[in-house]
Amino acid sequence: MAQTSRILVFIDTPAGPLHKAHRELLTLAASLGEPVAAVTGPSDGTLLTELGSHGVTAVYRPAAELEDSLVAPKAAFLANAAGEAAPAAVLLENTTEGKEIAARLGIRLSSGVITDAVAVDPDLTVTKNVLAGAYTVTAKVTVGTPVITVKPNSIEAAAGSADGMPAVVEVDPGDPGPAARITGRAARPATGRPDLEEARVIVAGGRGTDGDFGPIEELADALGGAVGASRAATDAGWIEHSAQIGQTGKTVSPQLYISAGISGAIQQKAGMQTAQVIVAVNKDADSPVFEIADFGVVGDLFKVLPQAAAEIRKRKG
């Protein structure tokens, strides 16, 4: 693939600076070719400068504001942006919404879609993990423009160092067709913790917490990490469903994953087995989680986690 090929990165942010996942995608795009971006939100001077620092040469934005809606209008706009940019590939976040947009985009472009990527080679061969992380496979789109969603923390985001200002191109937002709309919004209370899917450190609790996530949150805060949970914990109402990790929840790839009071059934493994380091804390020495853990502690999480948090704070101080 020629180094001058354009790689289109989808930046779905209503306002403010780039998210960590966006910077990772832009870093990957720059390693594959010439990064360009499709931006759904306002592309003010600050955002354009930041995009330019990551080597973005062109920014595509909708000519009319996208109305309160879910994925359909975003996919329609992105398809038109891809038509304008004629990229060698399109990169998106590996979120639930990002994967649905990718699927709709693939239909609109008559192109192949690959999700859950952890690496992309210059020839656009994709590496991904399948079957709950038990196997690593390579795949390549053979029809149309490759549409690829990339897991967070798979790429080390480079600091912006370029000095250019990208050109801004207005694009027809397109016809989304029948689509759901957002009828109301409610802000979630700020926790000060990183987003679960972008966090480098995650502390997750399960049935063994018996509804008390205090030790989980304490250790997560000491490590500057996010709080996750098993399906058993979210189904019990102990924590919101947005914290669920697993086959029916979110898939995460942190550098450090601490599992506390979670048995480690296959459903949970599917969401976290690609973590670089897994530490398990469980009273049951025969718990399946120890089979995939790099380090294991057989003990009561209510004793182990507070001690670990205290020692971390002590060393930080």
Rank of each mutant, 00 (worst) to 15 (best):
G299I: 00
A167V: 12
D121H: 05
A187E: 13
I239N: 11
S111F: 01
A162M: 12
K140G: 06
V304E: 06
A309G: 03
A79F: 00
T46I: 11
P146D: 02
D44N: 14
G264V: 05
R193H: 04
G174S: 08
K140E: 06
L70M: 13
V39L: 01
L305T: 12
F302I: 01
A162K: 14
P254S: 02
I202G: 10
Y60L: 15
D12C: 08
A37M: 04
A63T: 15
A243L: 04
T57L: 09
A102W: 04
Q267T: 09
I114N: 11
T136H: 04
I155G: 10
P254Y: 05
P166M: 00
I258T: 03
A265H: 09
S111V: 02
T251R: 10
G214C: 06
H54N: 09
L92G: 01
G41E: 07
F10G: 03
F295T: 14
A72K: 10
I7S: 04
V113T: 03
L219F: 06
G174M: 03
S110G: 07
Q247C: 09
I258H: 12
A309P: 03
P189K: 11
I182V: 13
V171G: 07
F77T: 04
N80P: 08
G224T: 01
P194T: 15
E84M: 12
A88Q: 02
G317P: 08
